[in-house]
Design a protein around this nucleic acid. Structure first.
Length: 201
DNA sequence: GGTAGGATGGGCT
DNA sequence: GCCCATCCTACCC
């Protein structure tokens, strides 16, 4: 499968919410595996207490405060890794969590990396699932995603779609902020998490 | 179809 | 010592 050009640093050097929305429909590529980004979440600076950067600059959050167009990979629940793309200008925190992909290349390899996935729709339908399927680990923390083995590309053919906005999944702070973006009707988005109040998907 | 509970360890108080 | 930006299995309709 052929893709378009790699997204340049200027794409990431913009407000977090804009980048989170614009990443939908783009192609995440790592080696021979690739998938269309169908779900993202924005993590802001300032008073967004759900963001790791909210507690200030530490060894872990250093990348988030650095220049845009780099990967921020962290470990959740001691077992899984999550991929974020750093946005906003150097010195200003902001990142976009990649939450789900529609696999489009290297699918056999992705299936071998995730034997628990029964259906294609489950292969990369969550932040921990997609890093497993794509072979993305914490060793890629800080990697430049405008060049190298992990990049984001435009699709060869841009397709129109509608976007839905919902609260973010699995966060307690700022639980009702509308910062999750999904491609409307896409079958590859994560299943979400039930919370008091009844929010699902 | 659905959900409850456990695995498991890094980061920060 | 507590809190997680999660996933999978077992078990129950």
């Amino acid at each position: 499968m052929r893709f378009g050009p790699i997204l340049k640093r200027a794409f990431y050097d913009r407000p977090t919410v804009q980048v989170a929305r614009d990443l939908l429909g783009k192609i995440l590529v790592h080696g021979s595996a690739a998938g269309v980004i169908v779900e993202t979440e924005a993590y802001l600076g300032g008073d967004d207490l759900a963001a790791h950067s909210a507690r200030g600059l530490t060894e872990r959050t250093r990348v988030i405060f650095g220049p845009p167009g780099h990967a921020y990979v962290y470990v959740v629940y001691g077992m899984y890794e999550c991929l974020n793309l750093v946005v906003e200008a150097d010195g200003k925190p902001g990142c976009v969590l990649i939450r789900a992909l529609e696999p489009v290349a290297g699918v056999d390899l992705m299936r071998r990396r995730r034997p628990a996935a029964r259906r294609l729709e489950d292969l990369a339908s969550g932040p921990g699932k997609l890093t497993l399927a794509m072979g993305i680990t914490r060793t890629l923390n800080g990697a430049d995603v405008t060049r190298g083995g992990l990049v984001v590309r435009r699709p060869a053919v841009e397709r129109a779609f509608e976007t839905d906005v919902t609260p973010r999944i699995g966060v307690r702070q700022c639980a009702d902020w509308p910062l999750r973006f999904i491609i409307r009707g896409n079958r590859f988005v994560s299943n979400g998490t039930f919370r008091a109040g009844g929010f699902v998907r």
